[in-house]
Design a protein around this nucleic acid. Sequence first.
DNA 1: GGGTTACTTTACCAAATGGTAAAAAAACTT
DNA 2: AAGTTTTTTTACCATTTGGTAAAGTAACCC
Lengths: 215, 215
Amino acid sequence: MTKKHATSKFMETDPPKKPSRIQQRNRRKILDAALDVFSAQGYRGATLDQIAETAGLSKPNILYYFGGKEEIHITLLNQLMETWLDPLVEMSADGDPLEELLSYVQRKLDMARDLPRESRLFANEILQGAPRMGPHLESHLKPLFDEKCTLIQGWIDHGKLAEIDPRHLLFSIWSTTQHYADFEAQVHVLLATTGAEHADEYLQTLFTKLLTPAR
Amino acid sequence: MTKKHATSKFMETDPPKKPSRIQQRNRRKILDAALDVFSAQGYRGATLDQIAETAGLSKPNILYYFGGKEEIHITLLNQLMETWLDPLVEMSADGDPLEELLSYVQRKLDMARDLPRESRLFANEILQGAPRMGPHLESHLKPLFDEKCTLIQGWIDHGKLAEIDPRHLLFSIWSTTQHYADFEAQVHVLLATTGAEHADEYLQTLFTKLLTPAR
DNA sequence: GGGTTACTTTACCAAATGGTAAAAAAACTT
DNA sequence: AAGTTTTTTTACCATTTGGTAAAGTAACCC
């Protein structure tokens, strides 16, 4: 009965029949549980049993929907990549440069707050040297990064922004915003509150001062 | 022959006889190898076999020097905590506030460059919710953090620095500097060079603009 | 309602992994 | 050199973990 040599029985291309309601529901449950576990424990720290229990399914049942642990992880990373780059994609050449960048910062911070699991999943993957994501970074992130760097450099050249290195600017936006999700355990101890209280205001100030051109 | 209920046979307090040359050498080799492996794979991702091979010792031999995997990890974290907080400790009330903070930023960046393994070990631990470090954060980091926040706030109150939240200032210093070590895999892809080329200049500019008081 | 297909469970397994016991080999001590 | 202590190796072990086979159950289709 085993047909094809696809990684998963759901990756076949011949009959693109849409997944049943049960399939959709269970795959969603599994991916959600896996996000929980992978983001909290890292890839190797996560176990299929944990994922199964969190999802409320049995381990073999999970392996009915996914080819294996790694396939679940890769599926998550691929899904993540899209939403993760969204805020940057939205930053467009239209509109005021400073406003565009500041609202990008805000979107990124909101994202870290709303999707901390995703942020940690990503952080874990990069920390370990991006073993399952290297190609994706090269093919998706790099072009977008270069494009936006050029855009920002253009703004600078037109005197719309202070003269700073666009690449490091993006790095600092990413690091400062994601910090609140990735290092939450530390932030929580130090602020003794649930998170980034006045982070919004602080970061807006930071990047305003950094980016406002000296006239 | 087993005496005491200490976690390790090297934690006994009665005969504080100094460790032999062999002991010192092997413990150092083990800790160095463990730093390699833990920082690259995370706690659960690291295996004793990997550590043993990297250290050039057999697994049981490693367990002769340490009580177990966790003890090695904890030893590393404890050692790390000291050097890690050093740059912040050095920031003193004497000297120009802006200079003090900027050279703190520089020291932190140098540290991320010189000790990337340590940075990643720490990042891994915090990412997983600081399961073996929570108390340490509370007892060591928190007091230091509060002290330095007060110091910075004092500087601000005297008009020596712009009015910003000291807590978030420290967060942004940590995140921006450590980013180059923790997210090296990503930075490397995007810069297509071995690391933080002009990070020094960029971060100095960033924090100068942020901290210079409007007069 | 009978048959086919989709889904779930039960019972396993092989490899990996943290760890131990005890013998063997070095290293020190006198 | 003999005896004692320290260090290393060999041979295991119990558990965990990713994964599978096959039988059972529920859904769907006519």
